[in-house]
Amino acid sequence: MTDTMTIHHAEHNVPDMLRGAGLRPTRQRVSLAEILYSKGDRHISAELLHEEAVGADVPVSLATVYNTLHQFTEAGLLREVVIDGNKTYFDTNISDHHHFFIEGENRVVDIPGEGVGIGQLPQAPEGMEIVRVDVIVRVRNKISS
């Protein structure tokens, strides 16, 4: 797995980061990685990354953005945060942590890994092991009475 601290330094050499993750540093991958990691830890949708790329004059299709995000996830450079079947975010913070999902704002916020206690986990199916537990806590603004 890739060193989290290395990924988030703006001065890090993006082509070297991609090579270190086993990915060829194509022009589009480098451009998208620079956009992704230039703003520190964040949760971004493919659509928003596509908008930012277009705004930065990076000629890339939405399909290429999706493919690249999934390649980065498989290479350990991102974490995929699936809120439900319609909402997926990609997290540049790959450390062990959980998330709040703020309903109404469609925003994801980190919860430190030690901020959530997991009681009893089920036995993994035969021949398998539990890799990670992801907790998503849904919150919304209180309704005033």
Rank of each mutant, 00 (worst) to 15 (best):
V82E: 04
G119E: 04
P122W: 06
F100W: 07
E103K: 15
L121K: 13
Y89M: 10
H99M: 10
I94V: 12
T92P: 01
G85W: 01
G115T: 06
V133K: 06
R79M: 13
T92V: 01
I102K: 07
F101D: 00
H99C: 09
V131I: 14
F90I: 10
P125Q: 12
I94Q: 04
I111W: 08
E126A: 14
V131D: 15
V108Q: 05
E105L: 09
I83G: 02
D134K: 14
G127P: 01
Q120Y: 06
V109L: 08
R107D: 00
Q120L: 09
I111C: 05
V108K: 03
M128E: 08
Q120H: 09
I102H: 10
D84A: 07
R132L: 12
I94A: 07
A124P: 06
V116E: 02
F90D: 10
T92F: 00
H98Y: 08
D110A: 14
V81R: 01
G104W: 06
P125M: 11
E126H: 14
E80Y: 00
N93Y: 12
N93K: 13
A124Y: 04
H98N: 10
S95F: 15
V108A: 07
E80D: 07
E129T: 11
P125V: 11
N106W: 12
M128F: 11
F90K: 07
G113C: 01
L121E: 05
E114K: 11
M128W: 09
D110M: 11
G113E: 00
I102W: 09
P125N: 10
A124S: 05
E80I: 02
Q120C: 03
D96K: 00
N93H: 13
G113W: 01
P122S: 06
I118T: 10
Y89A: 11
F90Y: 15
V131A: 15
R107C: 00
P125W: 11
V131E: 14
D110S: 14
F100P: 05
L78P: 08
P125D: 12
Q120K: 11
G127I: 01
F100R: 07
L78W: 10
P122D: 05
M128I: 03
H97M: 02
G117Q: 08
F101N: 00
A124E: 02
F101Y: 08
L121M: 12
I118S: 09
N93M: 12
E105C: 02
H99R: 04
K87G: 06
Y89H: 11
R107A: 01
V108M: 06
E129W: 13
R132W: 14
E114G: 10
G127S: 01
P112M: 02
